[in-house]
Design a protein around this nucleic acid. Structure first.
Length: 336
DNA sequence: TATACGTGGTG
DNA sequence: TCACCAAGTAT
């Protein structure tokens, strides 16, 4: 099928910088006023996406209460939550997030810890390299940003573990800036509601960002709220397997529903096996070190996997990643 | 652009 | 049971 993975091409446009960027101050004030009164804009600079109003109203009613959305959550807390939420479900992040911030409430606190402590604290969230990157991120925040999470997308992108999604998520959710925040939920919602496709297909960052940018409300605060609302809709209603279209606030405007919910026909990303892969072996190896309070001998690692070649390869890769520290006496430990 | 990278819940 | 799925990033 033609153009299967592509969202409609939009002019490449990222967000303006800062809260004052949403048109004129007077314009923002007028919109805010109209929002409060519930009146349509008298002289709209450009029509707001039909999605925004219903999605925002739905979010006000149905949003989950999550700790990183509390008003008191600072940029560091938001950043920690975003890193943990990369490919890990909310329910498993919740306890880890609380414990992490209790122990390291600031970037400086984490920066002062050993990287191995971060890896151990990460527990079984998965993808432990994230713990290492978050630790290194904290050190860079201290070294280059006075221990403060920057509010600039480009500065955020320069930090380890922070990519296109996380940089904008932090700028939008922690600093209330106007940026397209595009995660898998948003990609799916837009693919369905706007493009009429059941599945967003493979990601294409530049195009995806532009497509969502085109939907953003002009006002920065409203835009930031719209971003999290779109994600929430994708997480609770417009889910991958069995979407609950019956309770969707934009069902009436959904292009996919209107088209009869056609099945996806585009290219699919074949999920790779886990059992038997190096990833599984790495997980087993690291689990031994995570649960050990002291360095362990090679024998303790050897028992987790019988295939010597694969086990050694996996151990080597953990060392190469900085996740495991081979000590001079032949034992192994989490990095100190 | 495609692939590697953990872990556990779910239909 | 097992394939799919979960707020991605780095290479």
């Amino acid at each position: 099928m033609g153009n299967a993975s592509g969202w409609s091409g939009q002019a490449p446009a990222d967000a303006r910088k800062g809260p004052a960027a949403a048109g004129t101050v007077a314009g923002a004030a007028r919109r805010a006023c109209e929002d409060a009164v519930g009146m349509p804009p008298s002289v709209p600079a450009r029509a707001e996406s039909a999605l925004a109003g219903p999605v925002l109203a739905w979010y006000d009613r149905e949003a989950r209460e999550l700790p990183w959305r509390e008003p008191g959550a600072g940029a560091w807390a938001v950043l920690v939550s975003e890193i943990m939420l990369q490919q890990t479900p909310v329910n498993r992040v919740l306890p880890a997030y609380a414990a992490w911030l209790a122990r390291w409430p600031t970037p400086a606190a984490l920066a002062a810890a050993a990287p191995g402590d971060a890896v151990r604290m990460w527990g079984r969230l998965g993808y432990p390299r994230r713990a290492l990157r978050l630790h290194e991120c904290a050190r860079q925040l201290v070294a280059r940003h006075d221990g403060i999470v920057p509010d600039d997308v480009d500065a955020l992108l320069a930090l380890p573990g922070i990519g296109a999604y996380t940089a904008r998520a932090v700028a939008a959710f922690a600093y209330r800036q106007r940026h397209p925040v595009v995660d898998t939920n948003v990609r799916r919602v837009v693919a369905r509601a706007v493009l009429g496709r059941g599945d967003p297909g493979p990601p294409a960052t530049t195009r995806d960002l532009a497509a969502v940018e085109a939907l953003l409300p002009a006002d920065a605060e409203r835009s930031a709220r719209f971003g999290v609302a779109l994600m929430e809709l994708g997480a609770l209603v417009c889910v991958a397997r069995t979407p609950r279209c019956g309770s969707c606030p934009v069902a009436a405007d959904c292009a996919w529903l209107a088209a009869g919910s056609p099945a996806y026909e585009g290219p699919t990303v074949r999920p790779q096996r886990f059992v038997g892969t190096d990833r599984q072996v790495r997980g087993l190896l690291l689990g031994v070190l995570r649960d050990a309070r002291h360095p362990v001998g090679k024998a303790a690692l050897d028992v987790v996997w019988t295939d010597d070649v694969q086990r050694e390869r996996s151990l080597d890769s953990l060392v190469a990643d900085g996740l495991v520290d081979p000590l001079p006496d032949g034992t192994y430990a989490l990095p100190s």
